[in-house]
Design a protein around this nucleic acid. Structure first.
Length: 418
RNA sequence: GUGAGUGUAGCUCAACUGGUUAGAGCAUCUGACUGUGGCUCAGAGGGUCGGGGGUUCGACUCCCCUCACUCACCCCA
């Protein structure tokens, strides 16, 4: 084969596209009730948009971005996530002047240059929301609750919501220092990856899956104990409201996010039946990000769900194939000309009409009508043209009825049957 | 970037220890006294056996290289 889609970049074909449409529909429906409006953002941005927000030393920026130089010698990047472009647009269009909270959602493809595996491709899709202008923990709980009902409505079972607070710029450095202090003398017992993480992102060590690392990090200080008063209060609020809303969740202080912009609340929805990439949705609060983009101090919180991962968890019952209302069989050139017009007239009146395009036998045309599960068939030949009446056959009941050769009449008969 | 596994028709799979024109089921298209579907029967199209090189009289089968896919590490949605 000469041409193939690129590695990790897949075509999405029917019938799978039906599942996509369903999920998108449910999402829009739920977001609307919470006051979120759709925002459509570019797929490509100045590279700096991502470096500034995601963090220079994160893996995403260091090795996973589709970055290239355009014809005007600008460094541009295919978006690896949605929050950075969103905040850029938020500031660029002064959306902070809208009544707060400002709530937006988006959906579309993201790009990360990684080795594909189960639940991970280079082009993948996210449905994300962002809510800005409110710092109160009620908003955190509302956002998380919305995510929870969204996933439930889509039909996901056996997913766990984990939350934590990673503090703010005031308290996080203290925790980081305490953690490094704790790890310093035992570092030799950790895996090579963890040794590397110690300098780059020591919090990651809390997330390592190697058994010896899990053993060795026992007794490590917990972020939660290092939260400053404000962060502590905020986190308690989140938990209180989540309980009020009856959103099942567990607190996982070892939850680590790969993007630098998060502050305070972070959360992740995991599934055990996904393989190694087990997060279906994740998000958190970002109270300093708008300022990073030279906007006014504006707190924000958001999440993104991985559409492909959600879909792999949805056990779709093989849905009924959709079927045409009518198939037109034609015999002879004149009938063929008549039917292309008739088909168009009926379609304009709202029917799904298929027709025969060549000179094949009636048997073969009937077979075709059956294969595409047409509900009704009309045979149009010389006799019918002469008499001005056609025979319409119900493909399930096998009943044949005579109908005037006229779009309105045909429409009437078909509507009566519905 | 690292490691392991897998590559034969659109799909699922065959082909004895290397042996002649690589097969089947499903799917697609066509036909079965000529204007009526689903079942049955018959037929057709569709493969450079992932690609290249080597060994051999002879390679889908053995060896080397390469590519692709899959899973895992890493990282994340």
């Amino acid at each position: 084969m000469r041409f193939k889609s690129l590695k990790g970049i897949q075509d999405i074909l029917p019938p799978e596209t039906h599942i996509w449409q369903r999920i998108e529909h449910i999402s829009r429906d739920i977001f609307k009730k919470y006051g979120y409006k759709e925002i459509r953002l570019p797929i490509i941005e100045a590279t700096d948009v991502f470096i500034r927000s995601i963090g220079e030393t994160t893996d995403i920026v260091e090795k996973e971005m589709y970055t290239f130089t355009d014809k005007g010698s600008r460094s541009v990047t295919l978006r690896p996530e949605g929050t950075a472009p969103f905040v850029r647009a938020f500031v660029e269009h002064h959306l902070y002047n809208e009544p707060s909270p400002q709530k937006y959602y988006y959906l579309g493809p993201m790009y990360r240059y990684e080795r594909p595996q189960a639940g991970r491709q280079r082009q993948f899709h996210q449905i994300g929301v962002e809510a800005l202008g409110v710092e109160d923990s009620k908003l955190d709980a509302e956002v998380i609750s919305m995510l929870s009902t969204l996933l439930k409505t889509i039909g996901l079972k056996d997913v766990q919501l984990e939350i934590t607070s990673i503090g703010c710029i005031k308290c996080r450095p203290d925790y980081r220092a305490a953690l490094k202090e704790f790890l310093r003398d035992k570092l030799n017992n950790f895996c090579d990856d963890c040794k590397r993480r110690y300098d780059i992102n020591p919090l990651r060590i809390l997330d390592c899956k190697v058994p010896t690392c899990i053993e060795n990090r026992k007794g490590a200080p917990s972020v939660i104990n290092f939260l400053c008063d404000d962060c502590k209060k905020h986190f308690e609020g989140v938990q209180r409201y989540l309980n009020l809303l009856k959103v099942p969740h567990i607190i996982n202080p070892n939850l680590v996010r790969g993007l630098d912009y998060y502050t305070r609340t972070t959360f992740e929805v995991k599934s055990s039946s996904l393989g190694a990439q087990n997060a279906v949705a994740a998000g958190g609060r970002y109270n300093k990000l708008v300022e990073e983009f030279d906007g006014p101090p504006t707190p924000g919180i958001g999440f993104a769900i991985g559409v492909e991962r959600v879909i792999s968890l949805v056990k779709e019952t093989p849905h009924e194939h959709e079927s045409p209302d009518l198939f037109l069989c034609t015999l002879g050139h004149e009938a063929s000309e008549k039917s292309i017009v008739l088909a168009e007239q009926l379609r304009n009146r709202g029917l799904w009409v298929e027709m025969n395009y060549d000179e094949s036998s009636l048997r073969s045309q009937m077979r075709k009508a059956d294969r595409i599960h047409a509900k009704n068939v009309i045979v149009l030949g010389e006799d019918e043209l002469k008499k001005g009446k056609v025979v319409m056959k119900d493909m399930q009941g096998k009943k044949e009825t005579k109908v005037e050769l006229d779009a309105e009449e045909i429409l009437k008969v078909l509507q009566k049957k519905k």
